[in-house]
Design a protein around this nucleic acid. Sequence first.
RNA 1: CUGCUCGUUU
Length: 315
Amino acid sequence: THTFNIMINVLCKEGKFKKAMEFVGVMEISGFKPNVVTYNTIINGYCSKGKIENARRIFGEMKVRGIYPDSYTYGSIINGLCKEGRLDEGVEFLDKMVENGLVPTAVNFNALIDGFCNKGDLEKAFGYRDEMVKRGVAPTLSTYNVLIHSLFMEGKDGTADSLIKEMEGKGMKKDDVTYNILINGYCQSGNVKKAFELLDEMLVEGIQPTRVTYTSLIYVLSKSRRMKEAADLFEKVTRNGVTPDLVMFNALINGHCVNGNMEQALSVLKEMGRRKVRPDEVTYNTLMQGLCRDGKVEEARRLLDEMKEKGISPD
RNA sequence: CUGCUCGUUU
């Protein structure tokens, strides 16, 4: 069953729900019963693709089959609803899980808090932070990261700082996500110096920068017209064992485009091919926009055809 | 074996 669940998870993450359901059939025929994890995997797959109604259908189905939803099941649905901005429904589900005898976990609260943060309702976000504490659920590092993220993006650095102090007072240390939030915040406001200072601090603290970190740094360097440094950074980290992903490539391509170097941008596209990273609509949008701005409308047309050939839908 | 927080184009 574990092995089937792992395969079903892969299919769901790729959005291949038909195949995933076929697999459930195969596992039953082979004598393995789908368990709560199997259902949770499918429900989460649907939720993370924004197909909440499908998730709710499976949610009903599992109950009929005598499998009881747990905090993961509810968590996936709450998160899916919150991501869609359907916060009151998210809150309803949290209440519903309590009615069904489950105790909401920090993860469940964090999903709601993040939802309210993304709505810009910090009042309610902090309200649920207080609520979780009241119910005896301790805020986690993710809780802090969620709150720090929205405070920092809103420019409320002081409040963000005091939250960091509070968190450290509880014995939690800034992790890679915390640093990425701070670094990216400075990158978005074009503060190269602060961003790199935090990178240094991160290294001193023994925290490994991630692709996310490098993407933010490449972004700020290219916006600051320091494309050479951006490209050098990319080259250096990939040489040192970081496998660039789609987003990192897209940031680099965008940098070349913004800095008017379409030849380099296109050669990065080729490098993606060599490294077996599939370009997506962001890649093509970026390149086509760059080419058009450069007056190379014909080349842009060619790329549009190429993306259609690859089955990527243009917008 | 499954759920929460950070990065790229418009």
